[in-house]
């Protein structure tokens, strides 16, 4: 199998590391060669962060380059727009339809772009959901990333049991149930 390229983008602190580790664990359990690349340090303080996951028979470079992503998972819609050019022509873009203002917007030096989802839909296959609101309904706004991952799972070749298994092994023990519930929400959404 040629390498499958997945990107997770978001705002530092949103949990991109946890999500990439779930994906990495999933591909490892599936017997693939896997590489993933993360961002630590300063960018984790509210900056724009990117994580790459690649798996297949043999993977050399640990990053995904422009025009090569099969799936782009965005935890915030401005970040989806920032990295959309990394997608392949027929790649899937899964977006948490949620807004976090970057500091230039907070201080009035820039405007938050309007109509991002519509703009993205003109070029890409877009699956947008306000996962943050959905996760609040579950009682924990932090598990929105599992909802987004649930949608992404619809575009990947792993069984629900395989996903459950890796979630159980990756998230903190106390949060397994709510994370699985959040995953289900995304997995069952029609897209």
């Amino acid at each position: 199998m040629t390498a499958k390229n997945i990107m997770i983008v978001g705002v530092g602190g949103q949990g991109t590391l946890l999500t990439s580790r779930i994906l990495g664990g999933l591909a490892t359990a599936g017997g693939y060669d896997v590489k993933l690349s993360e961002v630590h340090g300063m960018a984790q303080r509210g900056g724009s962060v990117v994580t790459f996951v690649r798996y297949g028979d043999k993977v050399a470079e640990p990053i995904v380059e422009e025009g090569q992503a099969d799936v782009l998972i965005a935890f915030e819609r401005l970040e989806a727009l920032r990295y959309a050019h990394f997608l392949k022509k027929d790649g899937a873009l899964i977006v948490n339809d949620w807004r976090i203002d970057p500091i230039p917007v907070v201080i009035g030096a820039a405007e938050y772009p309007q109509g991002i989802i519509e703009t993205l839909k003109r070029e890409h296959k877009v699956y947008a959901v306000n996962a943050t609101e959905e996760s609040k309904k579950l009682g924990n706004p932090r598990v929105f990333n599992l909802i987004v991952l649930g949608i992404a799972a619809q575009h990947m070749d792993f069984t629900k049991e395989e996903w459950y298994d890796v979630i159980e092994h990756t998230v903190p023990p106390k949060t397994i149930e709510i994370n699985k519930k959040a995953f289900d929400v995304g997995y069952c959404l029609e897209s």
Partner: peptide, 16 residues
């Protein structure tokens, strides 16, 4: 042939 990145506001790191 790579699509041009969208021109969007930067998101530098900030104090939490």
């Amino acid at each position: 042939r790579i699509a041009e990145p969208a021109q969007v506001p930067v998101r530098p790191p900030i104090l939490c």
